[in-house]
Design a protein around this nucleic acid. Structure first.
Lengths: 211, 211, 211, 211
DNA sequence: GATGAATGAGCATTCATTCAT
DNA sequence: AATGAATGAATGCTCATTCAT
């Protein structure tokens, strides 16, 4: 799927477009209803095509969803590298990563992901896709870990907390989940929220002077 | 369901026991397989009763699961009050809440919850149940918020971060999700993890002296 | 299925009856339309039950059909033994076998069998059923072969034709197939037909005096 | 299809060739997999053309298969006439017919035929094709019947068996079916088998002197 | 004409729910 | 009250056929 050949015939272009439309629509429905409440029929209907057509693009529902995940993951992970490789202090780069996570693709998909990861064999499928997302994920983790260690080395970050736990904090705080809306549906703009989360991240809740 | 009448006939007691058994078993299966992969048949078989019997206790699968949530939530929320009302500094009470969350029921259910909350109309059901869990939740939030505000007032907590966001951080950090295992499957004991999370929570990642 | 327990509760009896009804009806439809043109829906409708009900008796279409085959085969093969063990000359026993084959279950099923044996994995299923039909079939063949050899030994049958080929002739002549109707739709009664086939079998087409 | 016009343009010739290729290939697949397990896709792929192209030659799957049958039948029936019209005794001509049947096209197709004849409306289609195969078949039967009657008249064949039944025996014995392999998978060469079948046909199983 | 993507009716199968016993 | 057989709506998937290019 999606072979990014530079020169496509008209038909191939249309086919690609339709495939993207299917992926987009499926993603929407999936986000709305979750894996099990999403039927191939509904996806087809929303796209405005016949059910069979989906099967000319994807061999099964699982594969379709796995493709969506893989695509999103990949996009998301690619965005990271630019940030990680910038010539900035560890602290600033980490802040940028936080911003990226905050607005991030990862957050939006988390709900879908968790609803799907239970029970179905998507894990296997997603992992088999695109040179294993898992590997990329591990790679990302190790890069960010290195960043944190760098920060520790130059005295920017505290050394009495495991790098892993720091990572965990970041991913937890900047990948908001569905039910968090209850908590966060108040008067803060997303940007203010981001700022405050960064403060908490770097300085904690205790009253002591930042900077 | 579960009318807590003090004096029950033998039959009524047996009925209660069975209902509890169903709830327990269903909870187990639900945790193992998620909402959609759990069938009424399997629950009944595991309990050792007929499928129909479940329907004499609960009118539908949704209602059964909603009951489980409501029960868990209630237990969980009750545990809070003791902690919140203790005669301790805001800071210490907050730490206790973190510990409670960390080991907590809430975390264990989160997976199930997220797998279920998508698509089915459980939200409505859960909310309609037991004088509205939602209200209790709001109540809890407001109590913890008050605690945080207290802490701010006595100078224990920083004032430049919204109380809501602090709450959010706590709930995010101390209610681990399934996929976090990837991150946390390393050499820390749960207690060490808890300690480190508290440090991060109170003092942040930046190198500066705690205490 | 069909455990022939002598004492059954009413429900169990009804269940058995229904199962038989399903088997019978399925057999009819199968004979009319063949494996692929037979839908579970039609079977259910003809029986007057819901489609799902069939699945409470048989786990799949294949299994249902395999059960039908196994049952028929077994009935048919059991009938053989009585004939083979009678205290009669080989020749007479062989004639009885011919009569049995002529009226036989085998013939009626042959059409269904051949329509089904192509492509589906029924072979495996049927063979796995009831202690392997195949073995029983082999056993039958060896018994009839022995009978033929006996006949050869006592000078009743010619010795210049392989026993296998004789068997083949019998099975071919006395297990009429569907398209034979074209040939045999004329003025002979089934009994006359049987008589004439026996004559051909024993004395051939050439003009020479029988007896 | 296959309009046997003597003078064809190049394109028409190519078209004919392709049609033959389709027929051949379809026949192969059909023999391998049976009617229902054969998909138009597979035929097209094996031929190396697009699925749609088949539909420019044949209006439907049924029609395609019917054409194959009709063609085979026709070839087969034509072979008969030469044998029937030879200047030989009825007995010898009959033997030749047996040999022809034995090696025959008819036998090879029987499996396919029976797998197909069930359920689909191919009967009608085949019969409607090519000036009705049925008629040719009837014609053949009547010719062979005449041959048998001739044989009866000159004292070669017995007169106490209906001509139809004799015909039936021949067709049954010399048109082997798939499942007969079980029986015949032994040490006889096809030729020996043919010889022995002829003996049985003419002289029967009973011990009495041939010739 | 050839192509092959699109179509959609059709099918086997599942499972929450009902209800006669 | 408990049972579990029966129900039937819903779903993923297939494949002969069509038709725009």
């Amino acid at each position: 799927m999606q072979t990014p050949t530079p020169h496509l015939t008209l038909k191939e272009k249309q086919r690609q477009e339709r495939e993207n439309l299917i992926l987009q629509t499926a993603e929407e429905v999936l986000e709305e209803k979750g894996y099990y409440e999403t039927s191939m029929d509904e996806i087809a209907t929303r796209v405005g095509i016949a059910k069979g057509t989906i099967y000319t693009h994807f061999p099964s529902k699982e594969e379709l969803v796995a493709t969506i995940f893989a695509r999103d993951m990949q996009k998301f992970l690619q965005g990271f590298d630019a940030i990680l490789e910038a010539e900035l202090t560890p602290r600033v780069r980490l802040e940028n990563i936080m911003s990226y996570l905050h607005e991030g693709l990862y957050g939006r998909r988390a709900k879908l992901l968790s609803s799907t990861y239970t029970g179905v064999d998507l894990k296997r499928l997603v992992n088999e896709k695109n040179g294993s997302i898992r590997e990329m994920w591990e790679c990302l983790i190790s890069k960010v870990s290195k960043l944190l260690d760098e920060g520790k080395a130059v005295g920017e970050f505290r050394t009495d907390v495991s790098t892993r736990v720091m990572l965990f904090m970041m991913l937890s705080l900047f990948s908001p989940r569905a039910h968090d809306h209850v908590l966060l549906e108040h008067d803060l703009t997303p940007d203010e929220l981001l700022q405050q989360l960064k403060i908490l991240c770097f300085y904690g809740m205790t009253q002591n002077q930042p900077e």
